[in-house]
Every structure is written in structure tokens, then in C-alpha cells.
Amino acid sequence: MRLDKFLCTCTGLTRIQAKRVIGKGHVKVDGVVEKDQKVKINDSHEVVYDGRRLRFSGPRYIMLNKPDGAVCTSLDDDYRSIFDLFDIERVEDLMIAGRLDVDTTGLVLITDDGKWSHQITSPKKHCRKRYYAVLAEPVTDDVAQQFSEGVMLKGEKQPTLPAELEILSPKEVLLTIHEGKYHQVKRMFGAVNNRVVELHREQVGEILLDEELAPGEWRYLTQQEVDSVNHS
């Protein structure tokens, strides 16, 4: 995590305020004044602001921009785990609030707060997720209507919940779903004789993927982002 974001999370300062106090030399990292707001901070660093050591307390809430080729599990013989991307303490305590396939990129929420995770993953909560998808074939005009009514997936006894499809171009769409069936987005397009060739999750509930996060980068959620799940 960048130093300015760390300062914001621990103190409640705005990003502008954090940059200002860092630039004025009010922040020390491992005993040395640090004026580079972009320097990376992890749990092993000692960060002191105005004589007070800053540290995360309580449950942790993280957003990750998942890269292609990483798996949402702790162990896999063929692919690297997303947990390898974190240089923090007690990684083993973290859980994923909604996994993504190995070839799907984008927003993954990670926490050690089980109740908070349940708000996202429980089928009864109908937490919305928005995906950007590139398709193998042009999407037909009737697909949006089919998705809004729900479609039957192979092996399921009930149709999907109504979903919203926004067509960006003949082969590019945004799809918002309100449940999390196994491989749901790919199976929905399979049900209408199409195929997903690229999939990227942009949003979970009210939480949007931070555009400043490159693939493989992460940050702690703001309090507003955390509360948006608790209040949904």
C-alpha cells in the first residue's frame, strides 16, 4: 500500500491532507523522514506521524485488482495464489468474499471479518456484481430482454435472477447480476449461444475497483466502502 493511502486509512486524513503532511516531513518510516507519498508500506514497517505510531487495528478489509492467471485459493500446483500478492501479517486469517476464476480479472474483496463477508456472499443478500465482458460473437438484440427475465442454466432448477445487460459494442457488454452461481456469467452467455473470451469484475455492491490499482495491486478499503456493505 502507498504511504499516502496508509496515512488516510489510519488517521482519517483526506488524500490531499496526507500528501501535504508527508511533503512537509511529518511522517517517518522506520525512523527516517519519508517525503515520498508513493513509497510502499506493509505490516513490517514502523510508520510514525506526529510522534504517534500508526497501525491497522480491528478487522481488515482489502480490495485487490486480481490479475489474469492467479487463483482465489491458498494452494494450487499450476497457478500462483492471490495470497502470494500480500506482504502482510496473518495472511492465513483472510478469506475471499466472492472468488473469481483463474482467467477472470478485476475486483476481489478480502477480509478476516466473517459477518461482513457473509453480507456479500450469502445468496439471500442478492449482492450485485458488475462485469465487463468481451464476447466471441456479436450479442443479439434479444439477449438483454432474456437476461432481464432470467435464463435457465444447465444443471439448475431455477432460472437466474433478473440481470441488467448494457451493450457497449457488438462484442462488448456490461452485465450486472444479483447472485453468484458457479461460473454464472460465462454460463449465462452460453445459454444464449455465445461465449465469453474476456471477463473483468468492476463492482461489488457499492464498491468500485480503484482505477489507480494496477493488476496485482491492492489497498485497504475506506471506512465508507466498508460501511456500504454493512448498510446494504
Rank of each mutant, 00 (worst) to 15 (best):
D141L: 14
N65Q: 04
V29L: 13
Q145N: 13
K171C: 14
P67F: 09
K186C: 00
G106Y: 13
N42S: 07
E164N: 14
K154T: 00
T73C: 10
K129T: 04
E206G: 06
R52Y: 10
D4E: 10
V108I: 08
V204Y: 07
A97M: 09
L174E: 11
L85A: 08
I110S: 07
Q146F: 14
G106Q: 12
G23H: 01
R219K: 03
T14M: 02
V102P: 13
D68K: 14
V71L: 07
T176Y: 11
E156K: 00
I16E: 01
Y49N: 03
P59M: 07
G58C: 07
E89K: 15
V21P: 06
R15M: 01
L7Y: 12
T9P: 05
R99H: 08
R99T: 01
E217Q: 15
D141P: 13
I22H: 08
H26T: 00
H178A: 04
L199V: 02
S122V: 06
D101R: 10
F83G: 03
K124L: 09
K24H: 02
G69D: 04
E206M: 11
G23Q: 00
A18S: 13
I120R: 10
P59H: 15
M63S: 05
A163R: 06
M1Y: 10
I41E: 02
V139A: 14
E92A: 03
C10E: 01
I96N: 06
A214Y: 12
R201T: 00
F86L: 10
V71Y: 12
E206P: 06
Q224A: 15
G180E: 01
Q146M: 15
E212Y: 07
G98T: 05
M152A: 00
D101E: 08
R53P: 04
R219I: 00
G180Q: 06
H126L: 12
T14K: 07
Q158P: 09
V204A: 02
V47Y: 08
D36W: 06
Y182W: 00
D103M: 11
E46G: 06
G180N: 04
L100E: 03
Y132R: 14
P138G: 11
D103G: 06
L174Q: 09
Q37V: 13
M63D: 03
A136W: 05
E211I: 10
T111I: 02
I96F: 13
T9D: 13
Q203F: 05
I167H: 08
D227V: 01
F189V: 01
P67G: 02
